[in-house]
Design a protein around this nucleic acid. Structure first.
Length: 551
RNA sequence: GGCCCGUUGGAGAAGUGGCUUAACUCAUCAGCCUCUCAAGCUGACAUUCACGCGUUCGAAUCGCGUACGGGUCACCA
């Protein structure tokens, strides 16, 4: 007649340590009162999700604000879904956004509570499971997937709660002798937790963002060790967050419903329950319905999308913080700052329901942030982001590019042309000869059809002669007005409208003729700036080209 | 379907029983400014807080019910 102790020793002969030994190995952190230990615990199944960036931003911020520790733990227990190399990619992308854990799995283990990769922690989980088994709170289960599915169907037909619990947990009543015999016979098995909970009782826990939540107690004998020898999320969460001394578990709200499992696990293992903060998910509107951002359907679900589009890291962070704390936007206005480090985050300023991802708002913040940078900074960042063609232009036309990026930069009324680095090239390509040539060949110079071509010609020829680049903008523009007057253009749109039939057009039309001739576009930044940056020779060259094209 | 969470304008929200004729930001629309664009400025945009009933002298704020939305019910996290 074998005991559970015998069973535990039979299954885990190599485990000699106990939970008490682990406690000594991973002692409490030495941190001041109030310092929070948080973590980001992604599974390496693909690239960083926007929601994960959101969660890690908050976790990082909480640790930073309180002088605590933020670490990264890699939850790679699902070997089937694991994507090769995505763990390192995750770390890299996080770093791009300034979320740089000092501890954890950072390409390699860094810190005193290593290993930080769950697949390297099998031994630790087994120590805990062995102890649980000795107490009769864990047992091997031999039920096959088919068997499980069958009972689930029976339960559903009887309108019972589906799952492995109570009388349906058939393996929990196996004697240690039976269990050993079946293992000996080579039957595959998992280890389940023996729950003592009662579904009719409620368990209440405190959530940092939602307040008290009460849910039915857990009564499921959940799997804690899979047949591949790795733990399930629930068990790994309890063990790791305990031994790594996490003080606040920050995770998505999809975990709320499994909190009772975690609570029972912590209690049974004799671990102190951490604080919990369940964050709202980021959703999008799809045919009038809110739904969670999906990595497959929505490019914006993946953080790499924003990197590819060339959004400044600050923009995304500021946008996410505006979702995280409703008072953040007011704070930025009052303090004239987008510096997240100076802002104090708090859980009770967090919205409770899932927010819709708002591209317009992101663009708004991004335009503001780019407008606040120096032209050198924008140049540098655009260069880092650029594809080979844009890169080569930035190199070949460094002076012009910097000048173009400097047009109406700075001050309260700064231009806000760019929401992302990808917006820059299409606008400033007018300064690049090759691109302008291409544009000329494709669209030519589309002058206003109302203005006779001999007038256009005359204006351009006159402009070539009379234009003075050394004048300041307003003075220069007066010379344009005078030029217009010589060719019967009104000096303002108002005068033109008041005297129908008297003029060929007004200054605006004169400016447009020059603009179109020089840039092949109807919309550009301030003409004077454009001309000065291009320089007399290039402007004359383009005007001649335009003149030659007029029939 | 059970359980949990939520519901203030197109979006994010402030609001914690009288100060609310419901802040602020984005978007949208209109006007101004203006050489076009981008900005900037001014104004418009919820007589109403999902709906119903109730508590109260008084409710977006409290209670109950209904509806709707989201989450979750794996050897996935």
């Amino acid at each position: 007649m074998k005991t559970y102790e015998d069973l535990a020793n039979y299954i885990f002969p190599e485990i000699n340590e106990t939970i008490a030994d682990l406690e000594k190995k991973y002692p409490a952190r030495n941190l001041p009162e109030g310092a929070e230990v948080t973590r980001f615990a992604p599974s390496p199944t693909g690239f960083l999700h926007l929601g994960s960036l959101f969660t890690s931003l908050v976790a990082h911020k909480v640790a930073k604000d309180t002088g605590g520790v933020f670490y990264l733990r890699l939850e790679d227990t699902d070997t089937k879904r694991e994507v090769e190399g995505s763990g390192d990619e995750l770390v890299r992308q996080l770093a791009y956004f300034g979320i740089d854990p000092k501890e954890g799995y950072l390409g390699k283990d860094v810190g005193p509570y290593a290993p930080y990769k769950q697949s390297d922690r099998a031994y630790i989980y087994k120590v805990c499971i062995k102890e649980l088994m000795k107490k009769g709170r864990a047992y091997p289960c031999f039920c096959s997937a088919e068997q499980l599915e069958e009972t689930r169907q029976i339960q559903e037909a009887m309108k019972m709660i589906p799952g492995y619990y109570g009388e349906y947990a058939i393996c929990r009543t196996n004697t240690p002798d039976e269990a050993i015999a079946r293992i000996e016979a080579g039957e595959p098995y998992v280890i389940r937790f023996k729950s003592m909970g009662n579904h009719n009782n409620k368990v209440t826990f405190h959530d940092e963002v939602r307040g008290d939540i009460s849910i039915a107690e857990n009564d499921m004998d959940i799997v804690i060790l899979k047949s591949d020898g790795l733990p399930t999320y629930h068990f790994a969460h309890a063990v790791d967050d305990h031994f790594m001394h996490t003080t606040t578990v920050i995770r998505g709200e999809e975990w709320i419903s499994s909190a009772p499992i975690h609570i029972e696990l912590f209690e049974t293992l004799g671990f102190k329950l951490p604080k919990y903060a369940h964050l709202p998910v980021i959703m999008k509107l799809d045919n009038g319905n809110k739904r969670k951002l999906s990595k497959r359907k929505d490019p914006e679900a993946s953080v790499s999308h924003f990197i590819e589009e060339g959004y400044p890291r600050e923009a995304l962070l500021v946008y996410l913080m505006s979702i995280a704390n409703s008072n953040f936007e007011e704070w930025t206005a009052e303090n004239h700052s987008y510096n997240l480090d100076e802002f104090k985050f708090s859980f009770d300023k967090m919205s409770l329901d899932g927010v819709l991802f708002d591209q317009d708002k992101l663009n708004f913040f991004s335009k503001e942030i780019i407008a606040l940078m120096s032209n050198e900074e924008v140049y540098k960042r655009a260069y880092e982001w650029a594809d080979p063609v844009f890169k080569s232009r930035l190199e070949a036309y460094k002076k012009e590019s910097l000048a173009a990026l400097n047009i109406e930069r700075g001050g309260e009324k700064a231009r806000k042309d760019y929401a992302a680095y990808k917006d820059i090239y299409p606008i400033i390509s007018l300064f690049y000869k090759e691109d302008n040539e291409k544009e000329f060949n494709e669209v030519g110079c589309q002058f206003k059809p109302e203005i006779p071509s001999d007038v256009v010609k005359a204006v351009l020829e006159d402009f070539k002669k009379s234009n003075d680049y050394t004048l300041a903008n307003d003075v220069w523009f007066n010379t344009v007005k005078e030029l217009g007057a010589r060719h019967n253009f009104a000096e303002s749109g108002k005068i033109f409208k008041q005297n129908p039939g008297v003029y060929v057009g007004h200054v605006g039309d004169v400016a447009e003729i020059i603009r179109v001739a020089v840039t092949c576009r109807k919309n550009t930044p301030n003409l004077h700036d454009v001309l000065v940056i291009l320089g007399k020779d290039e402007v004359d060259r383009r005007i001649d080209r335009a003149l030659a094209s007029i029939k």
